[in-house]
Design a protein around this nucleic acid. Structure first.
Lengths: 236, 236
DNA sequence: CGCTCTCTTGATAGACTTCAATGTTAGTGG
DNA sequence: CCACTAACATTGAAGTCTATCAAGAGAGCG
């Protein structure tokens, strides 16, 4: 899984593939809504998502919460802990998930030995940053409708890139409250915006399945331009 | 300057310091409000800020703008272009500034030869991401007053760490409209919040100089915890 | 079957924006 | 030294978006 993800970004030599395949990895199934790492922790391993959805978030005063990102199979949401020893936020499963844990030690050795792999992983954290910036645009300068539409487009692009979605349709295993916490909105308002998107025949959303009925219109409405995902040719 | 900044994060060997000092760097003075790199560009060099303030931003439809970050001397705002060839946003001076340009080629050679330096630079981009997350919290889950107060605390912490501010006082060379574009607010509302902060005797702001009159109160109000800046012991 | 979690809807309030006008400041050239 | 200009800051009034509060309806689960 990791080889496939990294290989989709840059060509890996046989030797590099070999080195990645040899990484010690402890695979563990986790229930939904289970913290993997918590703010303040000093993790000694990274987690590679093999199955399910994961999010990063922070809890604030008065029960408020901000979700920073959603992650899907192939992602390493806490890659930053390799170089920032103490976590400034938490990582938690969204759905039931399968996660592989790789010791920092092994990762550090890998990146020191293969600068090419280090560069790809570094790159991955930079794309992460690009997505944060795009979310900032959403919260700062887009309407709630645009922000939600944009997130739907983004998640589709990401899922489609790793072969987990086709035909503008995918499983969206997050509650409306989660969406609100991700975009800085109240759950009530999220609900109204979703209704609006449905009434405008842009999406359907039932049983946790999202279908984008009018991709062209939705991307136009939300000003979605996949460039910031830096996925190369697939992006179209 | 670069050695000092990087050396403040991790100990550099003599050899590493030597290698950094040998980097080819083209120093150029720039006027205020001058783009350094633009969205869509494929830069062949990075810029190291030697003097002045710089910001990263994106222009949107209808004249809207989102500022993603402010940068001060010692920062390399477009370090990401090393591994993400096409820019997804623009970089521009805020004030008159002095900037050093370093060819990607030289940087890539440096990081391939010295994995320790690569790790420090990587780390720097990760802190960048941490600041983005904190701004997301500000826009999503804090009031305008808290968000502005938080930004003031953050900039003080950053400036103080590189010796450019003391006594809770610093030059803040941004307009109220800039602040609004950074935090997702209208310039009018920024103005009102600033008045409120003044009336509560938390800050003074005149002639471009900001003074934080009550650090304890301002950090409490904005829930500012410098941990996310990952500055180590200095953070207190 | 009852319990809990999520979704849905209405009513009301508050935060923030927009529009528009005025005040302030620093710089420029006569 | 003063008129003139161009940014920037400040203020008021009106309007919009989104939050909060509250309550009911479904849906999944032991």
């Amino acid at each position: 899984m990791l080889i496939r993800k990294l290989g989709s970004i840059a060509r890996l030599s046989d030797e590099e593939q070999q080195a990645i395949a040899c990484l010690p990895i402890a695979v563990r199934p986790l229930p939904a809504a289970q913290d993997i790492v918590r703010e303040g922790d000093r993790p000694s391993q990274c987690c590679l998502i093999l199955d399910g959805w994961v999010c990063r978030y922070q809890l604030l005063g008065e029960g408020k919460r901000q979700i920073f990102s959603f992650h899907i199979p192939g992602d390493i949401p806490d890659l930053q802990s390799l170089h920032l020893p103490v976590m400034d936020h938490s990582v938690s499963t969204v759905t039931k998930a399968t996660v592989g844990f790789i010791p920092h030690e092994a990762m550090l050795e890998l990146t020191a030995t293969y600068p090419g792999i280090a560069a790809i992983l570094w790159r991955d954290t930079l794309v992460d940053g690009a997505i944060f910036r795009e979310w900032m645009v959403g919260m700062g300068r887009r309407t709630a409708t645009q922000a939600i539409a944009h997130l739907f487009c983004e998640m589709y692009a990401k899922l489609e890139a790793v072969g987990l979605a086709t035909n503008h349709r995918y499983k969206l295993p997050v509650t409306q409250a989660d969406l609100g916490d991700a975009l800085g909105l109240s759950n009530v308002h999220v609900n109204r915006v979703l209704r609006e998107l449905r009434e405008r025949n842009l999406i359907t959303l039932q049983g946790g399945w999202l279908e984008i009925l009018n991709w062209a219109e939705l991307t136009k409405l939300s000003e979605f331009d996949p460039m910031y995902l830096h996925m190369g040719r697939r992006a179209a």
